[in-house]
Write a protein that binds this DNA or RNA. Structure first.
Lengths: 355, 355
DNA sequence: ATTTAAATTGTTTTCGACCACATTCTGGCC
DNA sequence: GGCCAGAATGTGGTCGAAAACAATTTAAAT
């Protein structure tokens, strides 16, 4: 009953070979006779051997350098969370020889991205964690890294034509689908919904389009297209007068506006507008637990937020790279994080909690 | 770049003593001259030494026996998840010398619980994980364990008069509060809500009362008591005819019944009833991602489920005990798990995912 | 049959913390 | 000076996996 822990030595004894031979079989190195190989493999199966990761990492105290290429949190506060997540992972994994260097670029400036991605590549890292916000520009780097056999993990934005070690983030399509459900839940009368893209480079943001697609598809699938109408709006810089004017126009044009779906983390900009215009009958759903969003969630202007768990994305990104490089585990190519539905009432359990 | 990892040997060299002396200083054992002690302590500070946990746990191959006292999954399928969670933790932590023995009792039989709890205590475990479903009976065990200095972690049910190492689970009050929000979200007309306790020993289930309390309090706090009415019902064995009769009676009595809140994982029993009676205008919210619940979530009879993350509760319970016993970490006395809101559209990301 | 290279298998050290054991040092006493 | 207790300090083996290194066996060539 008491399954004692099986060591290489135990296998060696049972197979009547030396531990050197077992080691060679385990790692497919050196030369081993077919006979010995089979016997050892059989006994490994039988005894259900699992290598002791503690001992393994103690021995090979190699240092793994990882490069994290992420946008500047000072420019867009959304990126604070992934950064703190990867820092948390680095701290936990330091004893496994993990060291992370951040390369921080301006998310509104392609050249800044190119420069930092180049620097990161030149630092010859053992692994790369990347938020690929510039769809077109990132492709040539993928080619380089593939060539140099540097594993890279993407997060936040899913890129169709890439074969990263892993993608970590949400299923954008499904998240739009979910938002549609929440906005229509319990609504008796027909009306109009607005999909708002706030201050984004839309052609370069495939994931935002996926969200809209999922949103719209909900109405088709549930046969609600007669009852509800969906319109879209691309909003510019929130600090400009144009922003307000665009929203005014939409409200005039669709007096039966029932809800707004903000596809990125800037729901607070719309909430600010709604508050100023004392509009309380329009439901508002957006993404991410930024302080400004939380403020409007508390006041009730934002009804729900979808938590993209950005901290977790940074954290799991480093974890995945470590699992691959250090522990040689199988990596799932897509790690979808859950679509957490956040409201005033369950908010506190998602803040500064969870890996 | 001076990130070289500091070892005991490095400190010994710098302090011009042997590593034995450094060890004695670190662990306050044996005798060390005041002079040497101070010098070593100073250098430990200077070099910012942190012991290598990997090496430490490799050496000390002590085995920690943990006892998990949990209800029988064959009697109530809810308990499968915690069991699989703690098994997952055991597997991950086996190399740290963690071994878990389960003591499984019948959740509808006090004597069975007493017997198993006694057995567990007699096995002299290094730590205990417990689902304290019998409020009164468990108290004397707490006293025993406190006396014997056996750390115990509670999960699922919070017990007011206990000082466990840690409680893991949800805030029951807040979860009822959240359900009220969801049931009333977007509802224009007034109506009645039913709090249904299905087949439970209510006086002994303080956490279910907490849920009801939170639920009712929502209406008070939001000043909705004029608009909505809340009634409660304690239902017996779902297999009996009485069960159906009770529900029939409630529906006759409150024709404006708008929603039902099932306080435990047995929402599927009510869903079965609603389906049979072709009732589609009553919203239904319950707990936990049991297969039967998921079936009715898919068909739309259950609108939302609150995920209590029972697998995570088992998992984190063992993790907390390990952090305490093996890694000597500080343990937070309450670890509230998030109140995950589950609907058809985000369900898949919560199933068989996550630790 | 002897030599030799190749193929196979065995042995030993290393990683860092820990701990039992061994050794050296100090001061007090005859 | 010599002896000894007790205080202070040093040494070396252990954990399991890994990998460098050493030794042995096999098969082919002369």
């Amino acid at each position: 009953m008491k399954n004692k822990i099986v060591r290489i030595k135990d296998i060696a004894e049972k197979a009547e070979v030396s531990k050197g031979t077992v080691d060679r079989v385990l790692h497919n190195r050196g030369r081993v006779s077919e006979e010995a190989r089979e016997k050892v493999l059989r006994i490994i199966q039988e005894m259900n051997y699992e290598p002791n990761l503690i001992a393994r990492t103690l021995k090979s105290n190699k240092v793994y350098h990882m490069a994290a290429i992420i946008p500047d949190p000072l420019i867009d506060p959304y990126w604070e969370a992934p950064k703190s997540g990867l820092e948390k992972a680095e701290k936990e994994l330091r004893h496994y020889g993990i060291s992370v260097t951040s390369f921080i670029f301006n998310p509104y400036n392609v050249d800044s991205f190119l420069k930092k991605a180049k620097e990161a590549t030149q630092s010859e890292p053992d692994g790369i964690l990347l938020a690929p916000v510039f769809y077109r520009e990132v492709l040539s780097f993928f080619a380089q890294w593939d060539l140099r056999r540097i594993p890279y993990v993407l997060f936040n934005t899913q890129i169709p034509d890439a074969t990263p070690l892993s993608y970590i983030g949400q299923d954008s399509y499904q998240s739009g689908f979910l938002v549609a459900k929440l906005l229509t839940f319990g609504l008796p009368e027909p009306g109009t919904f607005l999909v708002a893209h706030v201050y984004e480079d839309i052609p370069n943001s495939a994931h935002l389009m996926k969200k809209e697609e999922g949103f719209r598809h909900y109405f088709v699938e549930k046969k609600l297209t007669d009852k509800y109408q969906v319109v879209r709006l691309e909003l510019g810089n929130p600090d400009s007068g144009l922003f307000t004017e665009q929203l005014n126009k939409v409200r005039r044009q669709y007096p039966d506006l029932k809800g707004i779906f903000v596809t990125n983390s800037k729901a607070y900009e719309i909430a600010f507008y709604l508050e100023k215009h004392r509009t309380t009958d329009i439901k508002l759903i957006g993404y991410d637990l930024l302080p400004k969003n939380l403020y409007y969630l508390e006041t009730g202007i934002i009804n729900f937020l979808i938590n993209q768990n950005p901290k977790g994305q940074g954290y799991w990104g480093i974890q995945q790279l470590t699992d691959f490089l250090v522990f040689k585990k199988e990596i799932q190519p897509i790690k979808y994080l859950p679509l957490d539905i956040i409201t005033q009432e369950n908010l506190s359990y998602y803040i500064d909690n969870e890996g």
